[in-house]
Write a protein that binds this DNA or RNA. Sequence first.
DNA 1: GTCTATATCGAGATAGAC
DNA 2: GTCTATCTCGATATAGAC
Lengths: 193, 193
Amino acid sequence: MGTKGSANRQRIVDAADHLFYSRGYNQTSFSDISDETGIPRGNFYYYFKTKEDILAAVVDARVGEFKAVLKNCEEATSDPMQRLHALAQLPLQHETQVLQYGCPIGSLSSELVKEQDTEISQVRLTAVFDLLKSWIIEQLDKLGQSSRGDDIAKDLLARMQGIILIANVYNDAPFLHRSVNDLQSWLNQTLSN
Amino acid sequence: MGTKGSANRQRIVDAADHLFYSRGYNQTSFSDISDETGIPRGNFYYYFKTKEDILAAVVDARVGEFKAVLKNCEEATSDPMQRLHALAQLPLQHETQVLQYGCPIGSLSSELVKEQDTEISQVRLTAVFDLLKSWIIEQLDKLGQSSRGDDIAKDLLARMQGIILIANVYNDAPFLHRSVNDLQSWLNQTLSN
DNA sequence: GTCTATATCGAGATAGAC
DNA sequence: GTCTATCTCGATATAGAC
């Protein structure tokens, strides 16, 4: 950690993270990553054995990114309701990217779920979703919704994914804004019971 | 039409339709289609100029399939509310496929929206979504919801997409059933105003 | 119309010099 | 640790015999 080698490794992961998001995993080649980093293709194999290993590192990186985002939410307010609203508004903070490339979790997941041969994808696939889900459940617990926690958490994730997918396919910013707003109303209604 | 050549063309489109759904467009090769149809790779170019042309034919085919489904809904009942409920329940009629491969429209769309080079994808991409949306709006008109029609239609599509994505990624049949049920309740509430 | 053989390219991956 | 050169394979696509 902190060595020069790790720095290059990190640059590869960062570039792959960005490219897997904007072009998709299968449509990103080693040449693409090489072009973006300036690191020659052959060098990748000093840090990773296969392309799937890079994918695993990218998934880990995204787990880390979302952990940081959630930590931010926690530090901004201690009110679980406020925290959930902040999560629901997250797509608006990345509006341009969301409209262009969809959700970094959802789009990657729906791409990898079709990969039948490999096994790593199936294992790590839901890592970020799981992280978000348990964080949501945590907030719901504090709101006295522990019995319905799992269901509500999945509902929230599903609604966010659907909104982002339609907003992405139609490149529809007004829809994104209105739907996030509706989602807030739904949160208020659902959690007032 | 009806010639032997068209029959082979149709077999290619059918196989590609199935494979694009189960493996994804980019992960389906001419060899895969050849294996499934028994028609040699080289022969494809007698019917299609490029792989994208096959994709265009598949999208057309899916438009046709969904037109037939909607026609079925219309013939089953003349009540617009019943028709919308039938649409919402559609994922349950293809439960096994939905849990394994997601939505044939949504998953293909989110794959192709990342394709930047080509232009055909951007053009035809929303063809099936557009078909469903205008059909939904049609039913909402009859229910006196013409003012909110476009918004409600997008909401319904977004909710279905989100439900299917989560059900697919987690291979979660109970969630799919419960969520479709919730969707029916939402339809009843939203359209009773 | 149908099929085989082949061209061409870019992908992931390896070997080995420095 | 870093880079170049190269291997192998499978992809789309083409040519041309039958």
